[in-house]
Computed example of a mutant assay.
Amino acid sequence: MTADENEQSRPARRRAGVADYILQHGSAPASELAEVFDVSVMTVHRDLDELERQGVVRKYRGGASAQPTSVFESNVGYRLRTAQAAKNTLAAYARTLVEPGMSVMLDDSTTTLALAPLLADAAPLTVATNFLHTIKLLTGVPGIRLLALGGEYHPNHDSFLGVPCIDAVEALHTDLLVASTSAVSATHAYHQEQEIVLVKRAMMRAAGRKVLLLDRGKISRTALHRLAPLTDFDLVVVDDRTSESELRTLRDNGAAVEVAHS
């Protein structure tokens, strides 16, 4: 690399470092980032503007965050780091629902990603997904027939969405859908982004049995777009951090809820 090329790549390397720092810590004030990366606060704000444009973080007064809100879904890099133990617990429960010979659809959630490595010993299986992480994980696994649901690639989610993806989903009918979402109230599932809602709805229509996996952090929340009533899922699986009152509320409103124990 020449000196000029090195100079041009320095801001990109710093922005990558800033993004990783925020993804690791959840949020950070601009003053802290300026100190960590030995640059001015003005430079940090320029970096945050670019990272926000890319959908990696959202800016707030004085800093930036990777944590979700009712209108902002976290970048996949942040979601891969969060609630890992709960996701593994939920995935282990979901694995008990999969039998050899089945066709299974997985959405682009990091929760269902935890299920993917557990599927090898259930082969032969047909697995359909729009999540590039899952596609890469299952590529070449013996006994797994992999159907990649293409569409427009969204780097913020590392998945394929849009009309082509919906068309690909609607051409299938799988035995089982295992999905997650970012928020649930007492009665409904929600998500921040319209395009993801449309794909998840198509997946629900394309599956014989529909299972929703939820870690405790997603319960008693809402987001901008309503996905579906919880009663549209054949089973809602929560982790064992969920309180008795939360379980009672979900069940009293008609949801079929089971608890996955670690």
Rank of each mutant, 00 (worst) to 15 (best):
L119G: 00
L119Y: 01
A120N: 12
A120E: 12
A120R: 11
D121G: 13
A123P: 10
P124F: 14
T126Y: 12
V127N: 10
V127M: 01
A128N: 06
T129W: 07
T129R: 06
N130I: 04
F131V: 01
L132V: 00
H133E: 04
I135R: 03
K136C: 06
K136F: 08
K136W: 10
L138C: 03
L138N: 09
T139H: 10
T139D: 12
T139P: 03
V141R: 10
V141P: 08
P142D: 15
P142T: 14
G143T: 09
L146P: 15
L146V: 12
L146Y: 06
A148L: 05
L149H: 04
L149C: 07
G150S: 10
G150K: 11
G151E: 07
G151D: 11
E152P: 09
Y153I: 09
Y153G: 00
Y153C: 04
H154M: 03
P155Q: 04
P155F: 02
P155L: 01
H157V: 02
D158P: 03
D158N: 02
F160W: 08
L161N: 14
C165Q: 07
C165R: 06
C165V: 05
C165S: 14
I166V: 14
D167T: 14
D167G: 12
V169I: 14
E170I: 05
A171M: 15
A171P: 07
A171C: 05
L172T: 02
L172V: 10
H173T: 10
H173S: 08
H173K: 14
H173W: 15
T174M: 09
D175K: 15
L177P: 01
L177W: 05
L177N: 00
V178H: 09
V178P: 10
A179M: 12
A179P: 00
S180M: 04
S180N: 03
S182G: 11
A183N: 06
V184D: 15
S185W: 12
A186G: 13
H188M: 13
Y190W: 12
Y190A: 04
E193F: 02
E193Q: 04
E195G: 05
I196P: 08
V197Y: 14
L198G: 09
K200C: 00
K200I: 11
K200S: 05
R201P: 11
M204P: 06
R205S: 06
A206L: 02
A206F: 02
A207E: 12
A207V: 11
G208S: 07
G208I: 11
R209D: 14
V211I: 07
